[in-house]
Design a protein around this nucleic acid. Structure first.
Lengths: 335, 335
DNA sequence: TGCCGCAAGTTTACCGGTAACGTAGCCAAA
DNA sequence: TTTGGCTACGTTACCGGTAAACTTGCGGCA
């Protein structure tokens, strides 16, 4: 194993007969050299198979990093995968590299990851959610780099924020269920006590229903990660405890689809006997035999805007601190 | 914006009254210092909020990088999300950081990403697939770092490989369909000409069917990314061209579920009129009203093993070059 | 008493790139 | 002829950590 790539600036300089600095300027596309020099340097670089050393660049000139970190609650969620994709595409296009992290809905994990990230002296960081440990906030304030908080909106961002209100998503769906004549409405949640944003949606639906005079009839709060199984068994448990519900609001679409599967397995007619509402807008939701009633979230756009905002700030361009992206309640066939 | 974290080794050294080098040894947990010195150094480091500079460490001692790159074909695929999760968990636990990339099923994109990655002088890299551009192979050979090729198995890895045979997946499902009495079998593919591994599965099923004397009756090869919609419309197109099929093998589970939705929308009985087979083993497949017949792939395990193999090699431990992970054909209710 | 060996440090020399600054050569305007 | 400005470079210092070599103090032992 021959560590260390063969060529560095000095090798090119020696071979070309100019100084290191001239080579550096040519390769970074600056100015202060003749066309002839440029051509010769590029030829030699090509011939020696030169690969720049960003480690040295970022280290020496301590503002030149092109590294951006992004931390999401779970990597296996389809929604966050799209956020990640939006971030990655935008940053790649702009010449940045992406370091990922997963906080498992835990502030401590987030802080631990952030500490590792900062040890690489990145150009900026994208976090999910608006609740962070005091240590995290401290680290970020001292690091003095752009920070974008995504997913859940906050009006007082550490630096910038791109997202929407989970509470409003829940409230809107609650009002919708009421308008459609539902009165005995249940809720199936997941990751009890861990997912702040899922809780915000439940709070939203609770508030809306209470205000309409038909408070939540029953709630089943699972500890599991929100998946199809959890939705299936969550609804089973909920209905066994509270038969006669006429609607259920699920933590997300995956669980709602699982719930739908259970309802059908039990011979319940959807939406006549039971209405089912999800959240998130996963693609599967719209090709089911029954199109799911859900709230569509612009995942990729959030990632893209977070990345672009971060880079704009790095470049000193004017940036909007808080960007609210619109979510859309899509009435399907399950309510 | 106050770039640059406050404290470095020298600050701690000055404050503690020892040399930089002693501080370095204490913080990295070496030896050659008294307990008293250790305690004082740690206290001062804590007080000054010291955060190590991995940039400097990796730069100065060019084997100290804890950066690992992983490149997958698509970030939005549920399967790769699980691979990524497996990689991330394992590497985080082992003290490494993860840089991601997405090659969009294109060798050029992969090479471009790899070039960026190498400019960070990473400790190792994980790539998907076994087909790479000559430039990629060159870069990897010169970089002299561990390389793991995942997902599609190869017997001649650049360095290491963890995966399975896509061809065999297809062949196994082909034989299964034949055993279940299917004779007019169609195929719906996606990402025509781009996804080598999807093609390998199609090749596998074709071979199996041909050997059984009932070659593929019709194939619809879409250009789209493999999702629910593509499955829905892919089956529609296929059946309009080749009515009377009694089974269809889909590119993956998402498409199979889309196809299932179409079949039900058309009033086709599954599996009586039409059998549907998927590939991948997404969770949704097993809670549908009809459990999907599919091949389950150990995604997370692949990521985990790739990461652990890479680190083992970095540590100079003995490693198995080629690890074949088992896939499992799960007979559901759709065949 | 003198020597040895070890623990506990210190000193020095880098790593590869970039910023800041220096300078030689040339041309044009004064 | 001098001066000033510009182009096209060269030189130096430095970033923060680490490896390796070197030093110092001290206890043990012949």
């Amino acid at each position: 194993m021959t560590r260390k790539p063969k060529a560095n600036l000095e090798d090119i300089a020696r071979e070309t007969g100019v100084s290191k600095m001239t080579v550096s300027r040519v390769l970074r596309g600056g100015s202060g050299f003749s066309d002839d020099t440029r051509t010769r340097v590029l030829q030699v670089a090509e011939r020696l198979g030169y690969i720049p050393n960003r480690l040295a660049a970022a280290f020496g000139a301590d503002q030149a990093s092109t590294l951006v970190g992004i931390c999401v609650p779970r990597l296996t969620s389809g929604l966050f995968a799209h956020v990640l994709d939006g971030v990655d595409r935008a940053l790649t296009r702009l010449g940045y590299q992406v370091m990922i992290g997963c906080n498992n809905h835990s502030s401590e994990d987030e802080e631990a990851w952030l500490r590792q990230l900062i040890s690489w002296r990145p150009a900026g960081v994208i976090l999910s959610g608006r609740h962070h440990s005091p240590g995290t906030v401290d680290l970020l304030r001292n690091a003095g780099m752009p920070v974008v908080e995504i997913w859940e909106l906050t009006t007082t961002p550490i630096d910038m924020a791109v997202g929407f209100s989970h509470f409003d998503c829940g409230a809107e769906m609650g009002q919708f269920l009421i308008r459609r004549g539902r009165r005995r409405i249940g809720v199936v949640g997941a990751m009890a006590g861990q997912d702040e944003m899922g809780r915000a949606r439940r709070d939203g639906v609770e508030r809306a229903l209470a205000q309409a005079g038909h408070p939540v009839a029953a709630a089943e709060l699972l500890l599991d990660t929100p998946g199809f199984y959890a939705g299936y068994y969550g609804l089973e448990t909920l209905l066994s405890r509270a038969p006669g519900l006429d609607a259920v609001y699920f933590h997300n679409d995956e669980m709602a689809i699982g719930g739908l599967a259970y309802a059908q397995a039990r011979g319940l007619r959807v939406p006549e006997d039971l209405a089912i509402a999800g959240w998130g807008g996963m693609e599967a939701a719209s090709v089911l035999p029954l199109r799911l009633t859900t709230t569509v979230v612009p995942t990729t756009a959030i990632g893209k805007q977070a990345a672009e905002g971060l880079v704009a700030r790095l470049r000193g361009e004017p940036v909007q601190d808080v960007v609210a992206v619109p979510t859309r309640l899509v009435p399907g066939q399950t309510v």
